[in-house]
Simulated assay, not measured.
Amino acid sequence: MLKINALALHSQRVFYLQQKQKIVYEFRRVFKLPLDDVCSALKKKIPNLMRSNPH
């Protein structure tokens, strides 16, 4: 039972990470900003966003 819960939690984390990556990608694509500016702009909305996370 614990393995199933751990797997479900991991799946949720992966899903949310993918969603955050999509947000960063679209923000950067639409506004045509350098990555540092995107990180600065989204830091308040995505607190755990680091310079090394988005691509």
Rank of each mutant, 00 (worst) to 15 (best):
L2E: 14
L2I: 14
K3G: 00
K3Y: 13
I4V: 12
I4R: 15
I4G: 02
N5V: 15
N5S: 14
N5Y: 15
A6S: 07
A6L: 12
A6Y: 05
A6T: 09
L7G: 08
L7N: 11
L7C: 04
A8E: 14
A8R: 11
L9G: 09
L9H: 09
H10P: 02
H10T: 09
Q12P: 01
Q12Y: 08
Q12S: 03
Q12T: 03
V14E: 06
V14H: 01
V14T: 10
F15I: 03
F15D: 08
F15S: 06
F15K: 11
F15P: 00
Y16P: 02
L17G: 00
L17C: 07
Q18I: 11
Q18P: 00
Q18H: 12
Q18T: 09
Q19K: 10
Q19E: 14
Q19V: 07
Q21S: 00
Q21G: 01
Q21P: 02
K22P: 00
V24C: 13
V24G: 00
V24L: 06
V24E: 07
V24D: 01
Y25C: 04
Y25H: 13
E26K: 02
E26T: 12
F27R: 00
F27V: 03
F27P: 01
F27T: 03
F27M: 04
F27G: 02
R28Q: 15
R29L: 03
R29N: 08
V30T: 06
V30H: 08
V30L: 10
F31A: 00
K32F: 08
K32G: 08
K32S: 12
K32E: 14
L33T: 04
L33Y: 05
L33H: 02
L33V: 04
P34L: 01
P34V: 04
P34A: 06
L35F: 06
L35E: 11
L35W: 04
D36C: 09
D36V: 12
D36N: 12
D36I: 10
D36M: 10
D37H: 10
D37V: 07
D37P: 02
V38H: 03
V38D: 05
V38Y: 00
V38W: 05
V38P: 06
C39T: 10
S40G: 14
S40C: 07
A41T: 10
A41P: 04
L42K: 01
L42T: 04
L42R: 02
L42G: 00
K43R: 12
K43Y: 03
K44I: 09
K45V: 08
K45A: 11
K45W: 14
K45E: 13
K45N: 14
I46K: 01
I46A: 04
I46S: 00
P47H: 02
P47M: 03
P47C: 02
P47N: 06
N48C: 02
N48Y: 14
N48H: 15
N48P: 06
N48F: 09
N48I: 02
N48Q: 05
L49C: 08
L49D: 01
M50V: 13
M50Y: 07
M50F: 05
M50G: 12
M50R: 15
M50H: 13
R51D: 06
S52H: 13
S52D: 13
N53E: 11
N53W: 05
P54V: 05
H55Q: 11
H55T: 04
